[in-house]
């Protein structure tokens, strides 16, 4: 497995602006993540971790250097090709849940499947299974407004995993939740990583949450400051 990392960053930089106003969000990152890892990304704001997440999620491309996703150079893909890559291989969970309002949990979870062009019956079956997996089987016809924060985040996780992606990117998934809900979400992510073998990369500010991961990467000033592997991590 080590021969074929899921994602590999090689000398990746990202700069915004030009001239004096130029800002290096990433100053040259080398990083390799293997399938099945659970990685926590930490660091103060402005350290480049969000930029790195955008690049990992194929929402953005490096200014220089190379990002390979399953061996494919993402920098050489068009906008639509990157969209297709996201559609088929990447699931997103956001701090603010980002569910469609006034739309039921089931329809929210179905959304990525619609873009995959799945027929109605399969779509319903998979979405219901995903909601069941996050423990919300009874809430499928509730809209986000009718759900608590923890429940909304679980719907968002169901939406991210319903397509069985290779990579789940979670951007501060517990940032808007109290500690009890946060623990529930972390346990859910751990279970997804363990049981389904989905690689999870998660940004967090909280060391307690990072402890659920098997590897913690810390960013500072656009560079990786430390890269710790925990809990008998085998590689």
């Amino acid at each position: 497995m080590a021969d074929h990392p899921l994602l590999a960053l090689q000398g990746v930089t990202k700069t915004y602006g030009t001239g004096d106003a130029q800002m290096h969000a990433l100053a040259g990152i080398n990083l390799s993540i293997n399938p099945g890892e659970f990685v926590a990304v930490m660091g103060p704001s402005g350290s480049g971790k969000s930029t790195c997440m955008n690049i990992l999620g194929c929402l953005d491309t490096p200014s220089s250097g190379e990002y390979r996703f399953q061996g494919v150079n993402v920098g050489g893909l068009t906008r639509n090709q990157r969209a297709l890559l996201r559609r088929h291989y990447i699931g997103f969970v956001f701090q603010g849940f980002n569910l469609l309002n006034r739309t039921t949990a089931l329809e929210n979870v179905e959304l990525p499947l619609i873009y995959r062009g799945m027929d109605t019956a399969t779509r319903h079956r998979l979405a219901k299974a995903a909601l069941d997996a996050v423990g919300l089987a009874s809430r499928e016809s509730h809209t986000p407004g009718e759900l608590s924060g923890g429940q909304q985040q679980r719907v968002a996780i169901a939406r991210a995993i319903v397509t069985e992606p290779a990579l789940l990117l979670a951007d501060e998934p517990t940032g808007n939740l109290d500690s009890k809900r946060s623990v529930e979400i972390m346990e859910l992510l751990t279970a997804i990583n363990r049981d389904q073998g989905i690689t999870v990369v998660m940004v967090t500010h909280e060391p307690d949450m990072a402890d659920y991961a098997k590897r913690i990467i810390s960013f500072k000033d656009g560079l990786i400051e430390s890269d710790q592997k925990l809990k008998g991590y085998l590689c």
Binding site: A83, L84, L85, H88, F92, L99, L100, L111, Y115
Partner: peptide
């Protein structure tokens, strides 16, 4: 924001 979600999930421009 909704459009952002759709695009992130993998909706094509078209």
């Amino acid at each position: 924001r909704e459009i952002g979600i759709r695009l992130a999930i993998g909706a094509l421009e078209n």
